[in-house]
Amino acid sequence: MNLKLKIWRQKDAKSKGGFETYHVENISPDTSFLEMLDILNNNLIHEGKEPVVFDHDCREGICGMCSLHINGHAHGPDEDITTCQLHMRKFHDGDTITIEPWRSAAFPVIKDLAVDRSAFDKILQAGGFISVNTGGVPDANAIPIPKKDADESMDAAACIGCGACVATCKNGSAMLFVAARVSSLAKLPQGRVEGARRAKAMVAKMDELGFGNCTNTGACEAECPKGISISHIARLNREFLSAKLKD
């Protein structure tokens, strides 16, 4: 396949960016999208140009490091996958592919296609944990947990923190990310203990960091590589409101 790539280039956080056009040739349909970018970068280095910076690591869809807005979609035009799992067979010979970084006020661009997602860490630091120290905990089977609850907790816990929800939301809202963590812990008896505190602290931090307000469009769920449901947002709302009403 021969492809035309329109890629966002930006020297650093402070510089003004813009699109550059590149061409890659003889790409096998079995190549992954990021391998295609590797090939482009290899060519650029040989041509004496600067390679394109993009975040990536595990390349098997679990670390959440890769991002990229490809042809209008977070993680590209395939369902339930991350960019690293996207393969070139999803494109056609001669296509023009537009590649942009995540766009959101809370995720500033660091360079080219890499953005700063440290806001997510900060939200989790505000309360995305169960306050237990190492040691001194009861036996793992001491508290039975209904399979359905454990499964639902796991559904939410599948979040990889990639930021596609924020990137795709027209409101720049992080509600799906926050909801996934709150919901995952809320479904477990261990997490219920400080459920109210957690919901309040995480939402407060999310608001403080400049994320937008959820308007229930469901775009986050549609683009989430792990298919996390917005029903978890309903649970977050419930947790948060009931906590606030008790204050």
Binding site: I130, V132, D139, A140, P144, I145, K147, A157, K187, Q190
Partner: peptide
């Protein structure tokens, strides 16, 4: 064994049987 106890206490959603045990 302590690791499993610790992880459950932290809210790791390990797979469970219908009876609620791991």
């Amino acid at each position: 064994n302590s690791i499993i106890d610790q992880c459950v206490a932290q809210g790791v959603p390990f797979a469970r049987e219908y009876g609620g045990l791991l």
